[in-house]
């Protein structure tokens, strides 16, 4: 066990799985870097250095730099997965799904069903998401709700370095296509991460903290924001459960329902745009299955229905903050308590 950054945790998961299983290959734009160029090999290790050192260790046959050609290499990863490899493809920014989504949602996601269960597609697509990097509208989106919508895909959104390592190893060992979301402002976050490989199962939510008054479900980076809000609220005497679903497909609805049945109040924090996102999805399912437990209306804390702006002044206003979350929790606590249904 030692302190590791989110970046190191992801790198270590990839390295350990590549050491364990020779069928694991990486591919993507600049995952090594410097291909065909006069300077160093393994020049970048991805634009933010996450895969640094892997090409040097495993060679160019297992760490494949690609041209800028997402349709071709994401599709090639899907085809290779059908034929015995376990590719981990890097879609540099999830915003680039627009140029390759067919290969993900019409091909990889559907093979198993269309082929009557005769195929498996053990594919991982790692991708960066999220606002806060001053990267503007085409490099800052969340978009995981779109993937969550598609049957056949699993969607993983780790909320810390420890979570990232265990969930990524699980993703690589998983026999279904997995979209693995890494928040670009979290790469330098540090915490204790075991040195040995370990897995975290999909579909099991993490109780980050347990409280009595309100359940806060938070996705990805929003887990940190919700935890800070919960710290502040604790000082005011409001006791919050913070729940990290870890994966939005499969979704551990059971844990959410059990928590809501205990607290009677639900706030959902989602960095994705507010229409048809994970917050609306969870909200609908809780209303459908645990309406009687609710003492107050469900509230969602999300960005506005806008693209992500560039100006730091606007981008900071776009992202759900601990202050906004705390304010929403206070308003939920202030709602007149609804009479439980007879």
């Amino acid at each position: 066990m030692s302190k590791k950054s989110f970046r190191q945790a992801v790198n270590e998961a990839l390295r350990q799985e590549m050491e364990r299983d020779p069928t694991v290959v990486l591919m993507g734009e600049d995952v090594g870097g410097g291909m065909g160029a006069p300077g160093e090999d393994d020049a970048w290790g991805g634009p933010l250095g996450v895969t640094k050192g892997l090409m040097s260790q495993f060679g160019r046959e297992r760490v494949l730099d690609t041209p800028i050609t997402e349709s071709a290499f994401i599709g090639a990863a899907a085809g290779a997965a059908l034929r015995g490899l376990r590719p981990v493809a890097e879609l540099m920014f999830v915003d680039f799904m627009g140029v390759c989504f067919d290969q993900i949602f019409n091909q990889a996601a559907k093979f198993r069903y269309m082929f009557g269960g005769t195929a498996k597609t053990p594919l991982v697509i790692r991708t960066m998401y999220g606002a806060g990097f001053r990267a503007a509208s085409q490099h800052s989106q969340c978009l995981y709700p779109i993937f969550t919508h598609v049957p056949g895909l699993k969607v993983v959104i780790p909320s810390s370095p420890y979570e990232a390592k265990g969930l990524l190893i699980q993703a690589i060992r998983d026999d279904d296509p997995v979209i693995f979301f890494e928040h670009k402002v979290m790469y330098d976050d540090e915490e204790d991460v075991p040195d040995d490989p370990y897995t975290i199962p999909f579909g099991e939510a993490r109780f980050v903290r347990e409280g009595e008054d309100v359940t806060i479900v938070a996705i990805g980076r929003m887990v940190q924001m919700a935890s800070k809000a919960a710290d502040a609220l604790a000082k005011e005497g409001i006791s919050c459960t913070v729940l990290d679903p870890r994966t939005t497909s499969p979704l551990d609805l059971q844990s959410i329902l059990e928590s809501v049945q205990e607290t009677g109040r639900l706030v959902i924090v989602d960095e994705a745009n507010p229409r048809c996102n994970i917050a609306t999805d969870i909200s609908a399912q809780v209303v459908e299955q645990a309406f009687e437990s609710l003492k107050a209306p469900i509230r969602m804390v999300c960005p506005p229905h806008t693209p992500v702006p560039f100006s730091p002044a606007l981008e900071d206003a776009f992202i759900p903050s601990p202050e906004k979350i705390a304010a929403v929790v206070r308003s939920v606590m202030a709602s007149p308590t609804r009479q439980a249904a007879a």
Partner: peptide, 11 residues
Amino acid sequence: APLACGAALAA
């Protein structure tokens, strides 16, 4: 076509 490239890569 991308899938064929993947199968070729696997081979």
